[in-house]
Design a protein around this nucleic acid. Structure first.
Lengths: 235, 235
DNA sequence: GACGGCAATAGTGTATACAGTTATTCTGTA
DNA sequence: TACAGAATAACTGTATACACTATTGCCGTC
């Protein structure tokens, strides 16, 4: 009854290509060359196309008739839409969590937020902060007791990961304290306030997204400042 | 036999297989036999696998290591979760619509709801009602001005279509009047009330889902009572 | 008859070949 | 030189072949 580690080539490269799309090592707007990419990844086109397919239906790639796939461009309007969508999901999830989460679960989440806030300095890199932030939100969504919320949160997190990573760079503090505030209102079973807080928490930097994306494009085109590998396994 | 003449085979059969999964012509829980299904659809396994892949990442199928895909079973808990999720999305979308929709757009939606309510009798089949219902909700989501909401609403609609179809059979009236009430509160820019109404509208029959699913299983296993083709192009 | 191992079968996952479509280069003409 | 159009190359979409895994049926042992 042992579950062998996933040996499917399609699964392996799915993660790699997704990482490449998230970090924009595949240049945004550019066309994906299947033969070239397959060669680069050391597999044939068949499993690669499987991965591209899944990525397209998740919104990372855009299929074009008889011209394969294009990497979705870094579009401010779209990122904004994703932030809005994420806010709606998380507010909804928090309402359910407020009804359903046990005190023990909330204790666990509070401990996580506390530990994240007091993490040692060497962990205070933008990447590490982003990772902790994503984990908090995913765990929070999990307290809704509804996996659809978790899946939706994870999916949107992946699509805005790059932007949030850029954003994290000059947003050192505050995040974890806001997380703590949310958990504490949940423990008081104050759904309305928790919902308001998480909405603010997500919307706070919404007006700066366009600027962040401008910076992001700079990072992309100034070469390896992106440190291509760093975002690969963030979640 | 390689004829990508007009459109991609993968796209064609994607819709067909999705319909088969939605209507449970592919028996829920059962394993999908690729060679058999490909033969049945008149294509090779390659485009079929592409379709199966997309359906898996959309939640219609469940991939299993070295055993292909299984049709997702009709699980009450999961349908419940989808209803909850849908409620959260639509409530969020309505808040945005309340801020952004023009009076003209709301007029249009109201006209649609009115026309739906007063549709001629021969249109009052469960399928037709479901179709109108889905369209209303998708148009409503569209007024949020955020395509992510639309996509999410459409996606969840597809996954609960079968259950709602069963449910529609003894829920003739009321739906359209509730739709009208929602639009009218939107026109008064009363986001709170519109949100409450749509949440109620969606949650109303939540407690009967288990029963509905039981009936659904009956329909599935009593053969063509399902009228397999009817749900195919509902949206 | 029950059970365990082994052969045979069926089925998935991957690679490769091929056909049709799009992009590019080359060539001739004005 | 500029440009149109054909020839060529590059690439995608599909079919097929093959390798490896899981399942099934069979046989012998207990």
């Amino acid at each position: 009854m042992n579950l062998p580690a996933s040996i499917r080539a399609a699964d392996r490269i799915y993660d790699r290509v997704k990482a490449m799309a998230c970090t924009y090592r595949l240049s945004p707007g550019g066309r994906v060359n299947e033969v070239e990419l397959a060669r680069q990844l050391g597999v044939s086109r068949t499993p690669l196309r499987e991965a591209l397919n899944r990525l397209a239906s998740e919104g990372f790639l855009v299929p074009t008739m008889n011209k394969g796939y294009h990497v979705r461009a870094l579009d401010p309007a779209e990122v904004l839409a994703l932030y809005e969508f994420r806010a709606a999901i998380e507010v909804g999830g928090v309402q359910l969590a407020c009804e359903r989460a046990t005190d023990a679960e909330l204790d666990g989440l509070e401990a996580f937020a506390l530990a994240s806030r007091d993490a040692p300095d060497e962990d205070a890199q933008a990447l590490r902060l982003l990772e902790l932030d994503e984990q908090f939100h995913e765990r929070l969504a999990g307290l809704s007791g509804n996996d659809e919320f978790v899946r939706a949160v994870c999916a949107t997190n992946e699509r805005i990961r790059f932007v949030r990573w850029i954003d994290m760079k000059d947003r050192r503090a505050g995040t974890q304290n806001e997380h703590l505030a949310i958990v504490r209102h949940l423990r008081q079973r104050d759904a309305a306030m928790a919902g308001t807080l998480i909405r603010q928490h997500i919307s706070r930097r919404l007006d700066q997204i366009t600027e962040v994306i401008r910076i992001g494009y700079g990072e992309i085109y100034t070469g390896n400042a992106l440190a291509a590998h760093v975002l690969d396994g963030a979640a």
